Amino acid sequence: MSRRYGGSPAGTVISVIADLAALILILWIAFYLFDANTANNVVSWIHDAANWLSGWSHNLFSIDSDNWRTVVNYGLPALVYLFIGHAVAGRTNRA
């Protein structure tokens, strides 16, 4: 793990958390697009976690298509978490 993330332990933790948040959001997008069974415990947990992580971005844009709305509502926060998380981790590693 240290080779992939490198730097200080705090920077590594920040990067891993950002990556996990983005992974949860991306998994929900995939589950939604492939019509996963929301009665399944794993799918339900991912959906709940993705809703919590992306709560600030819901209905940010008016999009008619349900699929595109899901991609934007959950994909935008995934990109934000990756960008900000890795930027903060980089600053932490330089400090």
Rank of each mutant, 00 (worst) to 15 (best):
Met1Lys: 13
Ser2Val: 06
Arg4Ala: 14
Arg4Gln: 12
Tyr5Met: 10
Tyr5Ile: 06
Gly6Phe: 09
Gly6Met: 06
Gly6Cys: 03
Gly7Met: 06
Gly7Ile: 07
Ser8Tyr: 05
Pro9Arg: 12
Ala10Leu: 15
Gly11Val: 04
Gly11Lys: 10
Gly11Met: 11
Val13Gln: 15
Val13Phe: 15
Ile14Arg: 08
Ser15Cys: 14
Val16Gln: 14
Ala18Phe: 08
Asp19Leu: 05
Leu20Ala: 14
Ala21Trp: 06
Ala22Leu: 06
Leu23Gln: 08
Ile24Thr: 14
Ile24Lys: 07
Leu25Tyr: 07
Ile26Asn: 04
Ile26Val: 14
Ile26Trp: 08
Leu27Tyr: 02
Leu27Cys: 05
Leu27Ile: 01
Ile29Ala: 00
Ile29Leu: 00
Ala30Thr: 02
Ala30Met: 05
Phe31Gly: 00
Phe31Asp: 00
Phe31Ala: 01
Phe31Cys: 00
Tyr32Phe: 07
Leu33Pro: 00
Phe34Tyr: 06
Thr38Gly: 01
Asn40Arg: 08
Asn40Thr: 05
Val43Thr: 09
Ser44His: 13
Ser44Gly: 12
Ser44Trp: 15
Ser44Thr: 07
Ile46Asp: 03
His47Thr: 04
His47Ala: 11
Asp48Leu: 13
Asp48His: 14
Ala49Glu: 14
Ala50Asn: 06
Asn51Met: 12
Trp52Pro: 01
Trp52Lys: 12
Ser57Cys: 09
Ser57Trp: 11
His58Glu: 04
His58Gln: 08
Leu60Gln: 13
Leu60Trp: 14
Phe61Gln: 05
Phe61Ser: 02
Phe61Trp: 13
Ser62Leu: 02
Ile63Arg: 02
Ile63Glu: 02
Ile63Cys: 04
Ile63Tyr: 04
Asp64Phe: 00
Asp64Val: 00
Asn67Ser: 05
Trp68Val: 10
Arg69Leu: 03
Thr70Val: 04
Thr70Pro: 00
Thr70Glu: 01
Val72Ser: 02
Val72Ile: 09
Val72Met: 05
Asn73Thr: 07
Asn73Tyr: 04
Asn73Ser: 11
Tyr74Gln: 05
Gly75Tyr: 08
Pro77His: 13
Pro77Val: 09
Ala78Met: 06
Leu79Gly: 15
Val80Cys: 07
Tyr81Cys: 09
Tyr81Leu: 11
Leu82Tyr: 03
Leu82Pro: 01
Leu82Arg: 07
Phe83Ser: 11
Ile84Val: 15
Gly85Met: 13
Gly85Asp: 12
His86Asp: 06
Ala87Glu: 14
Val88Met: 14
Val88Gly: 06
Gly90Pro: 06
Arg91Cys: 08
Thr92His: 13
Asn93Thr: 09
Arg94Tyr: 11
Ala95Thr: 09
